[in-house]
Design a protein around this nucleic acid. Structure first.
Lengths: 261, 261
DNA sequence: CCGACTATGTGAATATTGTTACAATGTAAC
DNA sequence: GTTACATTGTAACAATATTCACATAGTCGG
């Protein structure tokens, strides 16, 4: 059976115009004459694979090999990297450690980032205990909740603050990123509070599109939307005849897709 | 302060070629002469807004109004819908209830979907208790875990099965979708098992790109990648001067972006 | 140090996606 | 029913993104 690399790697509902940069927050809107956001969104994927390869002790990787693993064409990887410089060597490929360092540098991942977490319901608490964030340098350093009963509670060494404390807390801790795990109805309000407090990047788990100024980046994570965009493709006629037709003893033949998604 | 609608609504690392359809699983690869995946990925967002409007008692909406809410141009909405038919009325707009029904029909959201959940660690359990899924017709109906100690455990009215039970369980329950909440190192193996059991859509929470056959759709959810693709834009020079410059009493002026993301 | 490979970086070609602009059609107030 | 206005659906166009293909430059085994 043919395999391909997964769709929908990068979560994108496209990108905004992002033309005029606000007084602060985002790097001078590079989309002006800068790098396409679609390229930026692929870099973390490259970085992740490079990190893995580095851990495996691999010293060198070609665009072809990397592309194979990620479901991206070799040309696309080379093109993406070429926006930032020349990192490879003809005949050899890329030095894994060096390229990783460069990509991390481009993404400003060469230092940790303190992150605010807004909303401490089930999801917020699950995120708080997710080690993946801190392992990658994102440290949840401030907690906020709208609910007065939660405000003041202690979780680990963090205190839950009220929304009105946000400007002070965030500016004193120099927090520029936030994860928003609040219900849809509270999301715009929470967003406005975050923006007013100087946050310039928000990861939104609320199932709603919130409005932000041009100088603030936001990405959405929504499992329902992801599932709903896959049901379209499911062929119900396969129902009865499904059993037994897929079994695929060897997981070898793989096919890469044209894009990541 | 200017506002725009959020970037990164749709999570996309692009889409695969998806040329030749497998024997079953996905609807005849519509990307052949069919509808772009990017369009399909926007439909759930439209549906969500329509559902909200319907709940508010709104009867009619124009492409302009809908676009404003979602950060999509009016033309894009009209164009997207035009792939499927003509749903609006000149001079009036779209009937909310009717359009919602149509979009739900296109996405096959007019009936519930049983979903398998693989991996019952922290994340898996959090997903199991997330009401949003069932509210939207995605019912977690079978649990699987690799860990023999968990196999046999009961959660609510569901039993945790071992991976080897997957083909029988999924085919007897006619499950075609799965959510995968396993560690990166187990993700490819779990994917292969799901595929071998006839699943044709997978929502992957593992921080790794897994390989799937052409006739299986997969989307990835990864907060770390999402965060890492935003740090690029953060302007560190704003650090000192941040406090007090954003405060924005009114949340009115909003700007929509060119694309959803 | 040669010859056969290998793989980069990129201009040019292509493919995909999004926007503009407008004819067609309907609304709605009177 | 006539007039002024609103909004769709889409053809033509523009912008973006991806791939092709190749000159260039390095590798590597003898």
């Amino acid at each position: 059976m043919q395999h391909r690399v997964s769709d929908s790697l990068i979560d994108d509902f496209g990108d905004s115009g992002s033309e005029h940069s606000g007084p602060a927050g985002l790097r001078a809107d590079l989309n002006q004459n800068g790098i396409p956001d679609i390229v930026i969104r692929r870099l973390p994927i490259y970085a992740r694979s490079l990190k893995y390869l580095a851990g495996e002790g691999v010293e060198t990787v070609s665009s072809g090999e990397l592309g194979m693993r990620l479901g991206v064409s070799a040309a696309q990887i080379r093109r993406d990297l070429s926006y930032f410089g020349e990192f490879g060597k003809q005949g050899k490929g890329y030095n894994v450690a060096y390229l990783l360092e460069q990509v991390n540098g481009i993404l400003q991942l060469d230092h940790d980032w303190p992150v605010a977490l807004v909303g401490l319901g089930h999801l917020g608490r699950a995120l708080l205990h997710y080690e993946g964030l801190s392992e990658h340098g994102f440290n949840i350093s401030a907690l906020f909740d709208h609910n007065p009963e939660k405000v003041g509670q202690q979780i680990g060494d963090l205190t839950i603050y009220g929304m009105s404390d946000m400007p002070d807390v965030l500016s004193s801790l120099n927090i520029q990123m936030a994860i928003m795990a609040v219900p849809a109805r509270g999301a715009q309000e929470a967003t406005d509070a975050l923006v007013a407090s100087g946050v310039s990047a928000i990861l939104n788990y609320a199932p709603i599109i919130v409005q932000v100024p041009h100088n603030v980046k936001i990405r959405h994570i929504d499992p329902v939307v992801a599932l709903q965009s896959m049901t379209y493709y499911i062929d119900d006629s396969a129902k009865g005849s499904r059993a037994g037709l897929v079994r695929n003893g060897n997981g070898s033949e793989r096919v890469r897709s044209g894009k990541l998604d």
